[in-house]
Computed example of a mutant assay.
Amino acid sequence: MAYWVSTFITIVIIYIAVSIALYYLQDYMLFKPEKLPKDFQFNYDNQKFEEHNLETRDGAIINGIQFKPKGESKGVVLYLKGNSKSIKGWGKFAVDFTRLGYNVLMVDYRGFGKSTGRRSQKAIKRDLQEVYNKLKELTTEDRIILYGRSLGSGFAAKLASMNNPRMLILDAPYYSLTKVTARYAPFMPLSLLMKYPLPTYKWLKYVQCPIHIIHGTHDKLIPYKTSVKLSQVNPKLTKLHTVIGGGHKDLNNFESYHLMLEDIIRSKPKSIDLTTTSINVNHSSKKA
Score class of each variant (00 low, 15 high):
residue 4 W to E: 12
residue 5 V to Y: 08
residue 8 F to C: 14
residue 8 F to Y: 12
residue 10 T to C: 10
residue 11 I to V: 14
residue 13 I to T: 11
residue 14 I to D: 04
residue 16 I to T: 13
residue 18 V to I: 15
residue 21 A to C: 10
residue 24 Y to L: 12
residue 26 Q to E: 10
residue 26 Q to N: 01
residue 29 M to I: 13
residue 30 L to Q: 06
residue 30 L to E: 07
residue 32 K to L: 15
residue 35 K to C: 08
residue 38 K to A: 14
residue 40 F to M: 09
residue 47 Q to K: 03
residue 51 E to A: 14
residue 51 E to D: 09
residue 56 T to E: 09
residue 58 D to C: 01
residue 63 N to T: 14
residue 66 Q to S: 04
residue 70 K to N: 08
residue 70 K to G: 02
residue 72 E to M: 00
residue 75 G to N: 04
residue 77 V to N: 00
residue 78 L to Y: 14
residue 80 L to D: 02
residue 81 K to A: 14
residue 81 K to H: 15
residue 82 G to T: 00
residue 83 N to D: 07
residue 84 S to K: 11
residue 87 I to T: 00
residue 90 W to E: 12
residue 91 G to C: 01
residue 92 K to T: 12
residue 95 V to I: 05
residue 96 D to Y: 06
residue 99 R to I: 12
residue 100 L to V: 01
residue 103 N to D: 09
residue 104 V to Y: 08
residue 111 G to P: 07
residue 116 T to K: 02
residue 122 K to D: 15
residue 123 A to R: 09
residue 125 K to F: 13
residue 125 K to M: 12
residue 129 Q to H: 08
residue 133 N to H: 10
residue 139 T to G: 02
residue 140 T to I: 08
residue 144 I to A: 04
residue 146 L to I: 07
residue 148 G to R: 08
residue 150 S to Q: 03
residue 151 L to F: 05
residue 157 A to Y: 02
residue 157 A to R: 03
residue 160 A to T: 03
residue 162 M to G: 04
residue 165 P to K: 06
residue 174 Y to E: 08
residue 177 L to T: 07
residue 178 T to E: 07
residue 179 K to P: 03
residue 182 A to N: 12
residue 182 A to I: 05
residue 184 Y to R: 09
residue 188 M to D: 02
residue 189 P to G: 08
residue 190 L to W: 00
residue 190 L to R: 01
residue 193 L to V: 00
residue 193 L to P: 00
residue 194 M to D: 08
residue 196 Y to H: 11
residue 197 P to Y: 05
residue 200 T to K: 05
residue 203 W to Q: 13
residue 204 L to C: 07
residue 211 I to T: 06
residue 213 I to W: 00
residue 213 I to G: 07
residue 214 I to N: 03
residue 217 T to M: 00
residue 219 D to E: 03
residue 224 Y to E: 03
residue 225 K to Y: 06
residue 228 V to E: 15
residue 228 V to I: 14
residue 233 V to C: 02
residue 239 K to E: 10
residue 241 H to S: 04
residue 242 T to I: 13
residue 243 V to R: 09
residue 244 I to S: 04
residue 244 I to E: 13
residue 246 G to T: 10
residue 246 G to L: 06
residue 249 K to N: 15
residue 252 N to P: 05
residue 254 F to I: 04
residue 258 H to K: 15
residue 259 L to H: 12
residue 260 M to S: 13
residue 260 M to V: 11
residue 266 R to H: 10
residue 267 S to C: 09
residue 267 S to T: 09
residue 268 K to V: 13
residue 271 S to Q: 12
residue 272 I to A: 11
residue 273 D to M: 02
residue 278 S to L: 13
residue 279 I to H: 08
residue 280 N to C: 08
residue 285 S to H: 13
